[in-house]
Design a protein around this nucleic acid. Structure first.
Lengths: 341, 341
DNA sequence: CTGAAAGCGCTTACAG
DNA sequence: CTGAAAGCGCTTACAG
């Protein structure tokens, strides 16, 4: 392994001169020496030892990317998460930082891995309020949350207007004549995106003199396992005309659901209307194409990185909380019906 | 920050005694002391500094996970890759190691990040032959490739029987009366999985007195961008009865393709048959359900980690190359036709 | 502009 | 069973 010392020796200078060249402190080194040293570094293919550097300064150039790991599921099966992760990784790398990725089981794990590597900052996807409080209190690196709702003030978060998403969905269905609707998605017990979409949906129903029959809230314990969702589709189909439409919390779920409905000979949108969430690619590739509440994933990913780096640059810059807009994309999965009176 | 020294001081012992307790060298420490020290460690929430440890031993407990980064695409948009990555991360973490993830642009980047962090081992997804040679020569950590074909002997690789997959697809289509077929997928120019699926497909056609008209090999420059694929679907539709079926190199591509075909009023399987590859969840959720060549992604992911750890344990254990089987899953996207003579 | 020295937090022979 | 000391490869004041 080639070290600073080797380079210094070969160049006939001290290690600290080499160190200065590597770190771009060129004001402290004469031009000729700098160039000569640079040449040797390249020839010898010298790669600085990050552990040593990290130990000497407290500056690891590592960003942690932390995901919630549902019980025994693969979080990256969710196209939403996978897309986000992919974009974040690329962005962080392009800024010259390293990514340590962490699918966490317990909160202890998080602090452990943040601290053991002197991680400089962290991006956390989809945490819940109770978790956030702990994580936030225990760790003191800059953190940016994505899609989190929390009582903690001063939290940097990038999210979307989930409530409005729910509103748009409800209004759209109502405008198309639907009166008896269902809500399909993960539990609304946590103070998270799902709950807010749910609230927006229910509130809008109420405002229009309607309401969601609790029986028609279909709670999915898993949002990536097809069987469960397909089963739900069949259950909905068995309800016949009791409900005519559903707001589904993700396009991915919606696509499975539609499959379940079809298996029970219920056609979308002729017999049953569906409105999704996310605007994933899958929504345009299915038949019918999915009407959905669209969000901009790339923007969400990139902004979270940008905010984090702003905090890294100036440690006491204020927490930033961004709420991105959502919009309804009208496609083919919702039919206009004429409610019987 | 709590350090070894702090703990040692508080316990009234030397740092090396504490170090031994932490590393489980209990043979060298009396039981009472060990317990007392353990208690202090927990109370003070001591977390060892991995950089320091990594510097002292050459043992970082970091595994690099390296993905090919196509031009300006998000590799994790591929459900195949995302699933693999998710499973690998969880497995590696469960073994007490850290994952540094790397979507690489150039080969230099790889060695750079492997070396700067004294990474202990690497798992590389979907590399091509020419890249492998370089990567392999320059870096001397244990590496396991996934889905790679290479002239390099002694390479640890976990792959599937892509050739057989192509054969199965061709044979199945032939058995169902198809004579004029298409191949749809990324370029077959690299010595990679696609080429082997292609070969198996073509060879089987030949064996049956058929052949693939070069015009009917549809090459996709991007395998995750819907537009390109949907466009291809339309092109195929415009060919009318010139071809009756296509072997598509992934379920994800197949799903877009079907959409493109439908847009041009071509129904699957009534007017055109499709056989996919991978057996992703998406294949069961679409209508028609996709007939496909199935592989076991979880097994592929887990085995790659297991092999890597075997190499970590005993550095001169032989390279292992595993080829997992594939099988045809018959579903609904292929119709039986009666070829005109 | 350049260098000698101390120190970051750990581990590893080596003594006792 | 326990400890003092050197060393891993770097950076950072501090002198010159």
């Amino acid at each position: 392994m080639v070290t600073l010392k080797d380079i210094a020796h070969e160049a006939g200078v001290s290690v600290m001169t080499v160190s200065n060249v590597i770190n771009g402190n060129l004001s402290k080194v004469s031009k000729e020496k700098a160039e000569q040293i640079q040449k040797i570094i390249e020839e010898r293919k010298y790669v600085p030892n990050s552990s040593a550097r990290s130990l000497a300064k407290s500056n690891s150039r590592i960003i942690a990317l932390i995901l919630r790991g549902e019980q025994n599921e693969n979080t990256l099966q969710s196209a939403h998460n996978a897309t986000l992760v992919g974009t974040i990784i690329q962005k962080v790398q392009s800024l010259g930082y390293y990514i340590m990725i962490n699918i966490f089981k317990s909160q202890q794990d998080i602090s452990q891995s943040l601290r053991t590597w002197s991680v400089e900052g962290a991006i956390l996807l989809g945490m819940f309020d109770d978790e956030i409080e702990n994580i936030y209190r225990v760790n003191d690196v800059p953190m940016v949350f994505v899609d989190s709702y929390s009582k903690v003030r001063q939290l940097s978060n990038v999210g979307i207007d989930d409530y409005k998403g729910g509103q748009l969905a409800a209004q759209y269905l109502i405008d198309h004549g639907h009166r008896k609707m269902a809500f399909v998605g993960p539990p609304t017990t946590h103070n998270g995106v799902i709950r807010h979409r749910f609230s927006g949906f229910c509130d809008t129903l109420k405002k229009n003199g309607l309401s969601l029959n609790p029986k028609h809230q279909f709670v999915l314990e898993s949002d990536v396992q097809p069987e469960v969702i397909i089963e739900t589709g069949k259950r909905i189909a068995s309800l016949g005309k009791q409900i005519t439409a559903a707001f589904v919390t993700s396009d991915q779920i919606a696509s499975y659901l539609i499959h379940g409905l079809r298996t029970s000979d219920m056609r979308v949108p002729e017999d049953f209307s569906i409105i999704g969430f996310d605007d994933l690619m899958i929504g345009t590739q299915m038949t019918p194409q999915l009407t959905t509440i669209a969000q901009n994933l790339d923007k969400k990913a990139n902004l979270s990185v940008e905010i984090l780096f702003r905090q890294l640059q100036s440690p006491n810059s204020p927490a930033e909380s961004l709420v991105l807009d959502v919009e309804l994309k009208e496609r083919e999965s919702v039919a206009t019906i004429f409610p019987e009176k």
